[in-house]
Design a protein around this nucleic acid. Structure first.
Length: 914
RNA sequence: AGGCGGAUAGCUCAGUUGGGAGAGCGCUGCCCUUACAAGGCAGAGGUCGCAGGUUCAAACCCUGUUCCGCCUACCA
């Protein structure tokens, strides 16, 4: 393949589009159904189908892509399944807003037309995020793209629902659940976000029926719910109140009286007044207390959290004079009215400030209400137990480990999962009801407020519509209007995407999957549920490793949100700096157990890194033409042997880091090696040979140059797929694409400690010479007259051998002899270890700077020497420390004193010159 | 309230079984040296949150404490 000339600055745009398309066209990302090959499988955490890529997705998918590309290059049969979920509530909200803008509503459209409308919206916007993932370079098998509402995945959902129901693990019942009065649906416990806020605690007087002059004072944060009170509780061992147990109080603002019960669970004697009102229909604790004492439940709020006139009048028995004022008002407004009325009638004893937590809908941030309604639940404990065990025994590894405790803690206290949602977009619950069998449950009028079907109705659960009632053969059956929680279908993702419940070839080949990569925020929502469902329905763990990555925050550590205006849009950054730069930034900052504070400068820094690689490639390309010769490594010059030895170490480290999910370590190693070893030193070392007139010497060097650089490109490819492919294709190469080249493995015959030692000697000498140049303020172009000497025989030999390299890299003419053969005057002597570098001082030069530096150096060395001396003279140390530590200290002290004597003679000599 | 994590250079963070404090960015000085000014070379900068303890030796282990962040939670 002919080589091409590269532009001076890397321009990512066309490059990315070109190779992105090429890879897909060539089918490199498609997994083979080959049962013999070792498989490596990842399922993507499905993003919302109508969403678009945010920085969290960028991180999540970059990390997955690094793993997948790495394993693919290792020759494993890799499969990365892409897909999206239908995001029930969120998507329905979006489409409903569109309808409002058009002056209509979902109710006006009707259920079927509305669902068609959402499908149309999905059709229109559904490819956005998929295309964005492709831009990111995600090497998913796009031929296996899945959506949670695909036919196959829907079949899996029905299968799971029916089987759980048949086993008694799904049930229907009237319970208090979290209800969003704006989304008008039930939420699961974890879909509620708790937020601290400053509320008030109201002390309200409830007079005794027997003795109206005596009252029980209750404390409450929600006075408006008192209209639904059905009892007051005191602690049975509280001498202040326990004599009242069994008596009744008159409920203010109503014509009802309620009983006083003793309850040691609900009542905390230390809190408030020691008396608690019980409102079983509007509070989770009260609900349970109600069960214990067989109390009536009086729901006073409707589905929009407004006071229900019917309930107020007939159940709550609110005083007639108040009915008009209270009927239909919202809960917050009701609170104001109730408080005013209590105050006016002298029932309000006092009000105090009180910090409390408030639950909000995680989708729309509306305050959620506990709401008594018939819902479907998963009985979770039998599913949770094996899922706990899988993590405890290590069948599933959670990385970093800290998250395992989090998982276990939550799983051990897990509660039944409310899975029904009163929305239309989603998997409809496969349950039907016969109206003929239960005419009393299904009155001819439409079912209640929002179509909830009474909890007394008997469901007929089946995989497909039964058509007619299996009991009475009536055709008058209706399907449950509810749909399932989106996470219910997501929980099946690792196997439903592979074709389950069919025993497909894909399922047999790729399940269980290898690694799941996700953020800690959905550990409970998703990971835990996948583990439970996977174990239940496949008998296998759904994945071996769970890697939990960080949350991306802004440079100040704030959570990114549109309302704060601090979002970093990955697509904008990809356009500005290139996709590879963004990917590398995210990978390099992915330290375990720590959030990522992303500052724009970092991306810019890695854009520069991309360009550095690009320019190294340009240099190599300039010298690529010509003969190459593969001679034995041991006969190669220092530069060649040194870079191979270093490369070997980096290969080992990168592989090891990726094994341990240390993306940050791998990226930083690559960065440092590429820039500060390969470019700064290796390329400089080989320049003279490549540029010399004598072409013969360059053959072997050219060979190693091309070999090492090609290896480096393969190492970098999982992190920066685009620029590496572009360069690889431009250089002499074999094969179609870098994507399918083997990932480098350590090559022990490249290891050369002697070359690394020799390099260190060279580097020290050169750096010292350059420091001297800087101290004397000589420009980089000036050719220096240099002297070098060392007290170490090995180093002397090394310096002698590398004489030409030293001259080239130091830009000077170097004489290597003992110091007493150096000129006596006009020499600046700098010391590094056992070596002294002398610079000839020419012209008017201020030597104070050099002297200052020397003295500072002496001070630092003396400080350390005295620390070592005192350590070594301590009998405790010599008696108790391990022998190698003692020996090491002695060695270090010896070299320090040698260095110090060189330094002071140099100082003495320099004093004479100033 | 409980649990978890963090506090190391101006900023962002590494620091793997305790034994010479590191990187990137930024900053300072000198340079457009034919791969790269998105660059090169050199350099400055840190009582490792605070207080105790264990140890010959602590950024690292233990206890307490302050501040910050996150998660979980039924204190009305």
């Amino acid at each position: 393949m002919p080589t091409r000339k590269l532009e001076k600055i890397y321009a990512p745009h066309q490059v990315e589009a070109r190779w992105g398309q090429f890879w897909i066209d060539q089918g490199y990302f498609r997994a083979k159904v080959d049962p013999s090959a070792q498989t490596y499988t990842i399922v993507i955490p499905p993003p919302n189908v109508t969403g678009s890529l945010h920085i969290g997705h960028a991180l999540n998918n970059t990390l997955q892509d690094i793993l997948i590309r790495w394993r693919r290059m290792q020759g494993q049969n890799t499969l990365w399944i892409p897909g999206t979920d239908h995001a029930g509530i969120a998507t329905q909200n979006v489409v409903e807003r569109q309808l409002v803008d058009e002056g209509t509503s979902r109710e006006q459209l009707g259920r079927e037309a509305f669902i068609d409308r959402v499908w149309a919206w999905k059709q229109q916007s559904g490819n956005t995020i998929i295309e964005q993932l492709k831009r990111l370079g995600a090497s998913c098998d796009w031929t296996r793209l899945r959506f949670t509402m695909d036919e196959g995945l829907s079949t899996a959902v029905q299968e799971v629902f029916v089987r759980l129901y048949e086993e008694g693990l799904i049930y229907r019942g009237e319970r208090l659940i979290n209800w969003c009065p704006r989304c008008l649906t039930a939420l699961s416990d974890i879909e509620v976000e708790h937020e601290q806020f400053n509320g008030k605690l109201y002390h309200v007087r409830y007079p005794l029926v027997d003795d109206p002059h005596t009252s029980l004072i209750v404390a409450t944060t929600r006075p408006e719910t008192m209209l639904g009170d059905t009892a007051v509780a005191v602690h049975p061992e509280d001498p202040r109140h326990n004599h009242l147990i069994g008596k009744r109080v008159q409920l203010p603002l109503t014509t009802r009286s309620i009983q006083i019960v003793g309850d040691s669970i609900l009542v905390d004697r230390e809190f408030g007044t020691g008396a608690v009102k019980i409102t079983p229909a509007h509070d989770f604790n009260d609900f349970e207390a109600g069960e214990r004492h067989h109390l009536l439940r009086i729901p006073i709020l409707d589905h929009r959290a407004h006071l229900d006139p019917f309930a107020l009048k007939f159940k709550s028995q609110v005083e007639n004079s108040l009915l008009a004022n209270l009927s239909g008002v919202s809960a917050p407004k009701a609170r104001t009215i109730v408080v005013e009325e209590l105050k006016a009638r002298n029932f309000l004893v006092k009000t105090e400030d009180h910090k409390m937590a408030l639950g909000k809908c995680y989708r729309c941030k509306t305050v959620v209400e506990p709401y008594l309604s018939p819902q479907w639940f998963v009985k979770i404990q039998p599913l949770a137990d094996p899922a706990i065990e899988a993590v405890e025994t290590g069948r599933i590894r959670i990385i970093p480990e800290g998250w395992a405790n989090n998982y276990l803690g939550w799983m051990r206290g897990i509660k039944d999962w409310c899975i029904s949602r009163q929305i239309w977009w989603g998997h409809r619950i496969p349950a039907w009801y016969c109206r003929s069998c239960q005419p009393d449950v299904f009155p001819t009028v439409k079912p209640d407020r929002i179509g909830l079907i009474s909890h007394q109705a008997n469901p007929i659960v089946a995989r497909t519509s039964p058509g007619k009632c299996p009991k009475c053969s009536s055709g008058d059956i209706i399907q449950d209007p509810d749909v399932l929680d989106t996470w219910f279908s997501s929980a099946l993702w690792p196997f439903s995407t592979l074709g389950w419940p069919e025993q497909t070839q894909d399922f047999k080949t790729f399940y269980p999957t290898s690694t799941l990569v996700t953020g800690g925020d959905i550990l409970f929502f998703w990971v835990a549920r996948m583990i439970m469902m996977g174990l239940k329905f496949t008998g296998e763990v759904p994945f071996r490793d769970v890697y939990i990555h960080a949350m991306v925050r802004d440079a100040e550590g704030q959570k990114m949100s549109k309302s704060k205006g601090n979002v970093i849009d990955p697509l904008t950054k990809m356009s500005q700096y290139g996709t590879d730069a963004l990917r590398f930034t995210l990978a390099s900052m992915a330290s375990p157990g720590r959030d990522i504070k992303l500052a724009e400068e970092r991306i810019e820094g890695y854009r520069n890194f991309t360009n550095k690689i690009w320019n190294a490639a340009r240099f190599i390309l300039m010298h690529a033409d010509g003969r190459t010769e593969d001679t034995a490594i041991k006969d190669r010059p220092l530069g060649d042997r040194w870079i191979l030895s270093r490369l070997n170490r980096v290969i080992r480290l990168v592989n090891k880091s990726l094994e341990e999910y240390r993306f940050d370590q791998a990226a930083n190693q690559l960065y440092h090696f590429t820039w500060h070893a390969y470019c700064d030193w290796y390329l400089e070392l080989i320049k003279p040979v490549l540029q010399s007139e004598d072409g013969d010497k360059s053959h072997g060097t050219r060979h190693i140059m091309l070999l090492s650089f090609e290896t480096l490109l393969r190492l970098l490819h999982p992190f920066m797929p685009f620029v590496t492919e572009e360069i690889w294709q431009s250089l002499p190469h074999q094969g179609e694409s870098l994507v399918i080249q083997p990932f480098p493995t350590p090559c022990e015959k490249w290891h050369a400690k002697d070359a690394e030692d020799a390099f260190n000697t060279l580097e020290q000498f050169v750096t010292t010479a350059r420091t001297g140049r800087s101290l004397l303020e000589y420009p980089p172009s000036k050719n220096l007259t240099l002297y070098g000497s060392t007290t170490e025989p090995m180093e002397r030999e090394t310096l002698r051998k590398l004489h030409d390299h030293l001259e080239h890299l130091s830009r000077g003419t170097i004489t290597l002899t003992d110091q007493d053969e150096w000129p006596v005057n006009h020499i600046l002597r700098l010391v590094v270890g056992k070596t002294t570098v002398g610079l000839q001082v020419e012209g008017e030069v201020d030597l104070k700077k050099a002297l200052g530096r020397l003295q500072k150096q002496i001070q630092a060395k003396q400080k350390e020497a005295s620390r070592l001396e005192s350590r070594l003279s301590s009998s405790d140390f010599t008696a108790k420390a391990s022998p190698d530590v003692i020996q090491e200290s002695e060695t270090r002290l010896r070299s320090l004193s040698q260095e110090l004597s060189l330094l002071s003679s140099s100082e003495y000599q320099l004093q004479g010159m100033v």
